[in-house]
Amino acid sequence: MNVTLFIPCFVDTCFPQVGMHMVRILERLGHRVTCPEAIACCGQPAFNSGYWDEARQVAGKTLHHLRDAEAVVIASGSCGAMLKVFYPQLYAGRPEEAAAQRLSEHTWEFSDFLVSKLGVTDLGARFPAKVTFHDGCHGLRELGIKSGPRKLLEKVRDLELVEMSDAETCCGFGGTFAAKFPMISTAMGEVKCASAADTGAEYMVSNDSSCLMHLQGLLSRQGKPLKTLHLAQILDSQ
């Protein structure tokens, strides 16, 4: 299959290894991977801030470059929700509506693509550690992704998966929310980190780097031993 990998701006800039692991995994599964270099952002920051015209300036370019893709795989549940759920709303009643709808139907968050589209759960990975999984809200509630990442983790050799009590509670990132309301965002993150630490896990894993950027930022600042990792990093470990 021709897979178009969409690496969002913050993954590209701060977490390139997440994208690299995805490329390796997808190629190992025998797919042809392309990464359109012209697009960098899905437009979600402006969209969530209420500036839909400006969001369309960004989304329009992305839509144009991805409109004919066989399968778009995206390295974040949140950006995935933007393409799958919010593009059709952003373009409702506009000429691009049909294209947005088509893109929505051909877009997959990375773990969902592996499990639901390809039917793959065992990638032959080995990761000897105790981990807990954080459900990113957009992946969980906009895209309905819950069991997929866990199925993938269960197949990883020597990995012990433990559930935290607040796995489905928001970590407090929320895009511009984290900067506009840092005190609330921080309190939410602290609740989340405490919940993860209570499990005794060494790693908090997620399929969304944006949540992890916020959580790792808190953990590092507070000198906590718990570490964060993106799912793709584990799935590509040997």
């Binding site: 799958k84 759920v85 509630r141 906009e142 895209l143 309905g144 819950k146």
Partner: peptide, 9 residues
């Protein structure tokens, strides 16, 4: 019922 895309539909 015309909104949402989650698992609890």
């Amino acid at each position: 019922g015309s909104h949402g895309h989650g698992h609890d539909q």
